[in-house]
Simulated scan of single mutants.
Amino acid sequence: MNQITQTGTTTEKAISTALVKLGTTIEQVTVNVLTEGKKGFLGFGSRLAEVQVTVKNEKPDEQVDEVVLAEPESAPEPTEEQVEEVVALPQQESIVLENNESTRGLAVEETKTYLKQVATDMKIDDLTIHTVQDGKYVTLRLESKKAAVLIGKRGQTLNALQQLSQLVANKYSNQFLMIQLDVENYRERRQESLEQLAERMADKAIRTGKKVEFEPMPSYERKVIHHALSRRLDIETVSVGTDPNRYLVIEPLK
């Protein structure tokens, strides 16, 4: 499924629901607002927002290597009510405690509870979560026999869950937290795959004497490639375009 028309009480909620159903992130889609939402007065004249969300086409000639654990099983999508509840969290009054440690602990526990609820909706009943904290950086390592379902194609489901988890965490913390989700060391394996691809594409640029373009990718993946090639003196890497179509180019230096 590359396109979906979604309704919601607000445009933002409709978009967020569509992202989860498509298993992608806002950087990888285009959004067409069909109808703006309207609250109305005393229940009269209200109107749902309606959006059309389309996944951007990838460049077919430079596909990023994919880490494959297993063929993903089909799983029911998270409900619109569940997504809308999470999206609404930052718009509500935040719970503020004086002790940052206390709020961080609360934020992590609430995020884990949310993830387990989503897993249950996806028919995953064996999810376990291990927490690694380093100040404002929190990594939640997920374990399940259905790891491929949690990851999705090229990590799209995992990335969508990570975005929503960050919303949940920062509702309950008075210090901004950076949340990262990982399943069976997927992030590390993805990084290794990107680094290997970077070297191959750099060699191709030198061999052909022509610039090499990658497919559009999230900023953190572009940073991995920039860093992997930062010590090479025979090529230059630049990012081109604007999100969600921003991509990386390798240019050989004469």
Score class of each variant (00 low, 15 high):
residue 75 A to G: 05
residue 41 F to G: 08
residue 79 T to H: 03
residue 204 K to N: 11
residue 10 T to W: 00
residue 238 V to H: 07
residue 244 P to S: 07
residue 6 Q to L: 08
residue 99 N to K: 03
residue 138 V to T: 09
residue 79 T to F: 00
residue 159 N to W: 00
residue 88 A to C: 06
residue 10 T to A: 04
residue 65 D to K: 10
residue 105 G to E: 05
residue 70 A to T: 02
residue 47 R to P: 09
residue 156 Q to F: 00
residue 146 K to L: 14
residue 175 Q to E: 15
residue 8 G to Y: 04
residue 224 V to L: 06
residue 50 E to H: 07
residue 28 Q to S: 14
residue 234 D to W: 03
residue 192 E to G: 15
residue 124 I to F: 03
residue 129 I to V: 15
residue 176 F to D: 12
residue 24 T to Q: 12
residue 152 G to Y: 03
residue 67 V to P: 00
residue 102 S to W: 00
residue 87 V to W: 05
residue 60 P to A: 13
residue 186 Y to T: 14
residue 17 T to Y: 04
residue 230 S to C: 02
residue 82 Q to M: 14
residue 195 E to M: 08
residue 192 E to C: 08
residue 73 E to G: 12
residue 80 E to I: 09
residue 101 E to H: 02
residue 226 H to M: 01
residue 155 G to H: 03
residue 82 Q to W: 08
residue 51 V to L: 04
residue 52 Q to N: 15
residue 101 E to F: 01
residue 73 E to A: 14
residue 246 R to W: 07
residue 168 V to H: 02
residue 117 Q to L: 00
residue 58 E to A: 13
residue 51 V to K: 09
residue 63 Q to H: 05
residue 168 V to P: 01
residue 49 A to E: 07
residue 90 P to M: 09
residue 25 T to L: 11
residue 61 D to G: 04
residue 45 G to D: 08
residue 109 E to F: 00
residue 206 I to K: 12
residue 158 L to C: 03
residue 188 E to V: 11
residue 246 R to G: 14
residue 63 Q to D: 07
residue 15 I to S: 10
residue 49 A to Q: 04
residue 143 E to Y: 05
residue 50 E to S: 13
residue 62 E to C: 01
residue 48 L to N: 13
residue 212 V to H: 08
residue 109 E to L: 02
residue 59 K to E: 11
residue 172 Y to E: 06
residue 150 L to Y: 01
residue 139 T to N: 12
residue 118 V to E: 04
residue 64 V to R: 05
residue 77 E to T: 14
residue 1 M to D: 10
residue 76 P to A: 06
